[in-house]
């Protein structure tokens, strides 16, 4: 495996070097065009450097992205299937929009992207997850030189990871526990205050049936949610519907990100393992693996 990692690193590094030299060529080209004396007639040389730089950058980016994709598709796929029961990983695939909107607190996006799909069974609990990037369209009108212009912008309102877990209690009503989100599924929710003042300060609890809120949010469960909130910077939200629990974290990051100039090595893989450990902790903290409430079929 170590050999594999160094192969991917070598390919990624080649792409990064090409891109880096290309950027240097672009800078040199720009400097020649701007600062060289007209007498020296270096403009064609500057233009050539610019052209070579842009083409080189594109080639470097293609090399880089091919190396990263290969690493994820081959190495990570095999790695995750070895550490997670029935683990399946697809770097280019993600949760379907309907699966994401099922959580009930993420509004429908004008631009929807999901990737780094991971599913499997952790401590007997089935889960699916993926990174998601949701954007909404905003149209602005500006007036330039007396002419009205329409400007379309896409604003990111969610960038993070969404999880769907099998839940050990069967819920007939909707329940959402949200940190600075609000319900977006058009249902008539009632805001409920639980016994814990700290919990109520941290989360807003919305439900279509208050009994369901008290049924799911036992004192221990509330403590677990608080501890998860502490360990996950960013806005988080939980929703409970039917046999599923959704968890979304809006932290502007995602799992399994390979950054430029960061080495593909055992240490990087270890950070991915830590991300998986967070899922284990989530299952354990929320005792999703304690299936003492459902009857055996």
């Amino acid at each position: 495996m170590e050999n594999n990692l160094s192969t991917y690193q070598a390919k990624k590094s080649r792409g990064e070097k090409i891109a880096l030299f290309s950027i240097l060529a672009i800078i040199a080209g720009v400097l020649l065009l701007v600062f060289s004396s007209p007498d020296l007639a270096l403009e064609p040389f500057g233009l050539a450097l610019l052209g070579i730089g842009f083409i080189g950058f594109l080639i470097g980016a293609v090399f880089y992205s091919a190396a990263v994709n290969k690493f994820k598709k081959e190495y990570l796929k095999e790695y995750f299937s070895s550490i997670i029961e029935q683990g399946e990983y697809y770097p280019k695939k993600g949760l379907a929009p309907n699966q994401v909107y099922q959580c009930g607190f993420l509004k429908r996006a004008d631009r929807f992207k999901s990737f780094d799909y991971l599913s499997g069974i952790i401590d007997g609990v089935h889960f699916e997850s993926s990174d998601c990037h949701l954007q909404e369209k905003r149209v602005r009108y500006t007036t330039v030189n007396g002419k009205r212009r329409r400007k379309v912008e896409y604003i990111t309102y969610f960038k993070g990871r969404v999880f769907a877990f099998d839940f050990n209690k069967s819920i007939d009503h909707q329940l959402q526990v949200l940190e600075k989100f609000r319900p977006e599924d058009g249902q008539r929710y009632e805001k409920v205050d639980l016994e814990s003042i700290d919990f109520n300060k941290k989360f807003n609890t919305y439900t279509t049936d208050p009994h369901t809120a008290f049924y799911v949010l036992t004192p221990h469960f509330m403590e677990s949610l608080m501890s998860i909130e502490k360990n996950h910077p960013g806005r988080i939200g939980f929703s409970f519907m039917g046999p599923k629990m959704h968890f979304a974290i809006n932290d502007g990051k995602g799992f399994f990100q390979v950054m430029p100039f960061r080495k593909i090595d055992e240490r990087l893989v270890e950070t991915f393992k830590e991300d998986i450990d967070k899922v284990y902790t989530l299952v354990d903290d929320l005792k999703l693996n304690k299936n003492i409430f459902k009857e055996e079929k």
Binding site: D193, F214, Y215, F293
Partner: peptide, 12 residues
């Protein structure tokens, strides 16, 4: 669990 939930909701 349901009984506990009912009790807590009632008390709240």
């Amino acid at each position: 669990e349901h009984l506990q939930a009912s009790r807590r909701l009632y008390n709240a």
